[in-house]
């Protein structure tokens, strides 16, 4: 079973984000709320998902930019914490996520007498991203090939097949799990079911890569992979 060959290979496609400045800035939480309401979906996506593409040192206090700005610049830890717990992987589309963010901010502001402003002078700058893909020319026909390529592929491919696939392309299980379970893929629904959950663990992209490789190793019966290849 585990040596079976898929009818269709998995093609690894990496991506990068081109950031577009929208020229909309919020200096206080009330204005932040207004702009979130009208910002393009790509901007909500950028501020809640691009965290994963960033280097760990610059990921901020919380895994979304709204929470980090509220805590660090508006010095409103409560709002920061309430927004910070939002898990983008719990949402099936970006509009649901936007509604939850708006509801949290609106509810929070309704209990305050003064609107928190940026105390550092740094506004919240709205950005959106355009994703530019590049097919890496790498493909896997078997689980072993998938595992080997996964262990070494450029990390933007992990982002593309996990984050981009889910919310911008509507493939909610992500591409890896989709191929692992598909009939013309490897037909391994049990492995696919645990791979889907990797996106929800709050891991970095390298963490996701390591976890998926280990899950493959579990099925392949291989020893725990060498740390130096996975941990770099």
């Amino acid at each position: 079973m585990i040596e079976q060959r898929a009818k269709q290979p998995f093609r690894f496609v990496s991506c990068m984000e081109l950031r577009e400045i929208l020229g909309k800035r919020a200096m206080d939480e009330s204005r932040l709320l207004e702009i979130i309401e009208e910002a393009p979906a790509d901007s909500i996506y950028y501020h809640t998902h691009s965290y994963y593409l960033r280097h760990p040192y610059s990921q901020g206090v919380f895994p979304n930019d709204f929470a980090t700005w509220a805590a660090l610049h508006a010095q409103d830890r409560v709002l920061g914490e309430r927004l910070g717990i939002l898990d983008p992987f719990e949402f099936d589309d970006i509009e649901q996520l936007r509604v939850d963010i708006l509801t949290i901010i609106d509810d929070h502001l309704s209990h305050l007498r003064t609107i928190p402003r940026s105390a550092t002078g740094e506004p919240f700058e709205f950005v959106r991203s355009h994703v530019i893909e590049a097919d890496l020319g790498l493909q896997a026909w078997t689980l072993r090939e998938f595992r080997e390529t996964m262990a070494d592929v450029e990390v933007g491919a992990v982002y593309n097949h996990v984050c981009e696939a889910r919310l911008r392309k509507g493939r909610l299980s992500g591409d890896f799990a989709g191929w692992l379970s598909a009939e013309d893929g490897l037909g391994l629904p049990d492995l696919a079911a645990v791979v889907v959950k990797v996106g929800r663990l709050g891991l970095s992209l390298e963490g996701m890569r390591t976890r998926i490789v280990r899950l493959c190793d579990g099925v392949l019966g291989a020893p725990v992979p060498d740390a130096h290849r996975l941990g770099r």
Partner: peptide, 8 residues
């Protein structure tokens, strides 16, 4: 550069 940069 980070792994895979040149190929990308």
């Amino acid at each position: 550069t980070p792994r895979g940069t040149v190929e990308f």
